[in-house]
């Protein structure tokens, strides 16, 4: 057997991900070596039999920022919360189809949901720090996941707060109530609270829409800084924001009373040369 046959066990591995060659318009940053981390196939979510969305198939790439855009009521948030199975909490909600993260089936009934949610953090529209001190907000999730070493706790908290840029602002008053922070600071604290668990994926449901423009800008910069280290999926109604920060964008629209994925592409491609006329109308502000 010669080396060139390629039938040796060592060469049976899938081909390594290669940087794609694309036109200048879609050439993204270097993080965008398309390695699929979250795979969604034929997914449908319905509430008490009423479909929120259906037939959604898309891949979410590791280390990239993927934006879900589209009008309200087209199932973006439902799709987001089915990734960390927060849909389990809603009575009457049923999910069909396949979601896998790093090859692991998220919908597997035997899956440890707590471990899944530790790997997949979520940020909500309205900042929701717990009514505890800043420190307790960050420390409690760590403790609940089994970390009790004081020094380790402190260093993880410090790192997370530095990651979100809150450290210089609040390091002297970690024991102050978290609810006394401003809206933007609260949202960054919530991001820190997710980061402190060292997740792989961050799901963000309109994280800036409840903030004033200045804070919104700060949080947006923060999200951008997470690129490459975390896989970020963000639902946003702010098209300009999606365009600024996202590598990939998915456009959803309501068809036959259920949300559906119209177009999924590189962000620039979707905004500058959309393939679908609905997308074109939406991103140009003519529809939706």
């Amino acid at each position: 057997m010669t080396k060139s046959t390629g039938s040796e066990p060592g060469q049976n591995k899938p081909a390594p991900a290669t940087p794609f060659t694309v036109s200048p318009i879609v050439a993204g940053p270097t993080c965008c070596v398309p390695e699929c981390q979250i795979r969604i196939e034929d997914l449908a979510v319905s509430y008490k039999g009423v479909p929120a969305f259906k037939d959604v198939t898309l891949d979410i790439y590791r280390g990239c920022i993927t934006a879900f855009i589209g009008p309200s009521g087209c199932g973006k948030t439902s799709l987001l919360s089915s990734i960390n199975r927060l849909t389990d909490m809603i009575a009457g909600c049923s999910v069909e189809g396949l979601i896998s993260i790093d090859g692991q089936n998220v919908r597997d009934p035997t899956l440890d949901v707590r471990a899944l949610r530790r790997r997949v953090g979520m940020i909500f529209q309205k900042p929701n720090p717990f009514p505890l001190s800043i420190r307790r907000n960050l420390e409690m999730p760590l403790r609940e996941h089994g970390l009790t070493n004081r020094a380790e706790l402190d260093s993880r908290i410090e790192k997370a707060l530095k990651d979100v840029g809150l450290w210089p602002e609040i390091h002297g008053r970690l024991d102050a109530p978290a609810l006394a922070l401003s809206g933007g600071q609260q949202q960054r604290l919530c991001i820190a609270r997710a980061l402190v668990l060292e997740p792989a994926v961050l799901l963000m449901d309109e994280p800036c829409s409840a903030l004033d423009p200045l804070s919104s800008g700060v949080v947006e910069d923060l999200i951008e800084s997470l690129r490459g280290r975390y896989t970020v999926v963000i639902v946003t109604h702010n098209l300009a924001q999606a365009r600024r920060i996202a590598n990939y964008a998915a456009f959803f629209w309501v068809k036959e009373r259920a949300g559906t994925l119209i177009e999924f592409d590189f962000c620039r491609q979707l905004f500058e040369a959309p393939k679908h006329e609905l997308t074109a109308a939406y991103v140009n502000g003519q529809r939706g």
Binding site: M89, R117, R118, G121, P129, L132, E144
Partner: peptide, 27 residues
């Protein structure tokens, strides 16, 4: 207790017991 706390706690992978004792009761 606002729904956002329950969602937030669930999204952090907190157990029901932890959510009740460490979030809902203090709140």
């Amino acid at each position: 207790v606002p729904m956002t706390y329950w969602q937030g706690a669930a999204a952090l992978g907190l157990s029901k017991e932890a959510t009740i004792l460490r979030v809902a009761l203090p709140a």
